[in-house]
Nucleic acid binder design. Structure first.
Lengths: 156, 156
DNA sequence: CGGGTTCGTTTGATTTTCAAACCAAATGCC
DNA sequence: GGCATTTGGTTTGAAAATCAAACGAACCCG
């Protein structure tokens, strides 16, 4: 492997480790388990999502997802809605409390980053963004965030 | 917050989510828990590290670290060495088995990335690396990887 | 020496997670 | 239409991960 590739990989690992440990701390700060935090974020992203989908997305089993959702529901962070078409199915979305939870959760690392980033020259910002987007593309991660659109299959 | 900052943040979250879910899958593939995997990586990085340090690094309690290390030791993935100076202290390092474990663990995502990255023009690579390094700096993550140097305080 | 701190372990309990069995709804096939 | 199969979610029972608190041994410092 080329030395350049190495450099890039090292930087990426540093970034991902930094953010990972950030999210651990974040979970702790908001009295959530890491899974719960991730679940909330994921639900927020999808706006509404079924347990199974969420489970595969988070690589957890369906059973685990049941208990996870029950906890979040009990704490009034997510709302459970029945699918009108398929009666086996649920959809979970965030309650306002849940919204607030992840919004005002101190985005410590990202906050700090934002400040520093904002102080860069325009051209520097542009350069960094384009590099980041190249990376996202190379990771095939473009559609991870997708857009605030319902994460379900079309209705036929 | 500026729109540009937003773009950068979105890209970064995509990257970190992609790598996070990668590491979950990775752990599963190598029959390790996520914590165990991270611990191995962390030990590898530091070459040798004490349980407490590792615990704070991973934001786990010392008690948890004890059981975690016992498991890894039982599976012969890490080696426990006594500190000659401070007799309370242990140092953990990877055994050859442990080395192999994390080396040949399919670096799925990163592998794929490497391939694509290697195909870029030199100047593109350079640009991406410099952007990444700016980010690392802004995240104060420069010394996360530090270098393969013993991770202890100087001996006085 | 002696009080305070640090390192790692133990203990007992809680939480997370899983696999397997299960039910109900949907789908497919004849 | 009816029967077998698949799919979405829950339950159950057990294993693994984690924690807080208490502990002993080693260290530190006055």
């Amino acid at each position: 492997m080329s030395q350049r590739t190495d450099e890039a990989l090292i930087a990426m690992r540093q970034i991902s480790r930094a953010t990972a440990s950030d999210s651990r701390a974040l979970a702790k700060a908001s009295a959530l388990s890491v899974s719960q935090l991730i679940a909330l974020q994921e639900i927020n992203r999808a706006r509404a999502i079924s347990p199974s989908k969420l489970a595969t997305k988070m690589s957890l089993s369906r059973g685990t997802m049941t208990t996870l959702m029950n906890k979040l529901e009990a704490r009034n962070l997510v709302r459970r809605e029945a699918d009108t078409i398929d009666k086996r199915r649920w959809y979970f979305s965030l309650t306002e409390t849940g919204q607030k939870m992840i919004e005002q959760a101190p985005r410590m690392l990202h906050e700090e980053f934002s400040e520093k980033f904002a102080q860069l020259q325009q051209w520097e910002q542009a350069q960094i963004i384009s590099a980041l987007e190249r990376i996202v593309a190379m990771l095939d991660a473009e559609d991870i965030d997708a857009a605030p659109i319902l994460d379900t299959q079309e209705i036929t």
